[in-house]
Design a binder for these strands. Structure first.
Lengths: 110, 110
DNA sequence: GGCTCACATCGAGGAATTCCGAAACATCGG
DNA sequence: CCGATGTTTCGGAATTCCTCGATGTGAGCC
């Protein structure tokens, strides 16, 4: 306890860096309501449970597949999303707890 | 009204970009309590009113003076700080209202 | 085992960021 | 007006980011 808050938390900086790209921020926003932004009927698994697969995200984003893959990996490294592999499809879902915790940390330290 | 939140607010991205640099984040954190992090006795003006001058910020940061000046200008463009010139000293102060509003926006859109 | 599909990783080119020192600008004291 | 001091702006070098196409890897199908 007794934190004087001198230097910024590296994890916080990583998250801010990940979010500083408009498309990555957009991706995270789309994942707030998968059913609103992705073809639910084509889903191979329940979006509420495992999230959305890279193919669908890529189709929505309009970027190269490799770029979307790298962006999702970066969001995951920053702790903002969690990945689950179902068959050959990797699904990404927001880590709501971690995100809320990040916003709270910003409200305090920032 | 009736916002479905499709594309990210450019102002939000600008702020996140400004904060994605560890030193800029640090500068903003130091400005939370100027009296704790800067030599109050050498202050040319009231920190609570106008903030801290670039010289003191530069001394604390250990970066080149031109770099600190550019960083503060960037934080100002992002709307996170306000500048006030007192004589030959430019003072920077946090825009608490704008910052709180930013955190709130993150909590909603993010 | 081969083939295909979904995804990850690699390599690369162009753009942006990071940080500096030098020069220009502004302000005050004499 | 001159010089000194605080700050901004300019030009540049090293690094990182953005984004792509190509290649590698793993899972399912026949």
């Amino acid at each position: 306890m007794a934190e004087t808050a001198t230097s910024p938390d590296p994890g916080l900086v990583d998250a801010l860096r990940a979010l500083s790209n408009p498309m990555r921020l957009q991706l995270l926003m789309w994942l707030r309501e998968p059913e609103r932004h992705f073809p639910l009927e084509e889903a191979i698994a329940d979006p509420a449970e495992v999230g959305v697969c890279v193919s669908h995200i890529q189709a929505r984003a309009g970027l190269a597949q490799s770029t979307v893959s790298a962006y999702m990996a970066e969001l995951q490294r920053a702790g903002l999303v969690k990945a689950t592999r179902v068959g050959k499809w990797t699904h990404y879902k927001r880590d709501e707890q971690r995100i809320a915790q990040l916003v709270a940390a910003l409200g305090e330290t920032l």
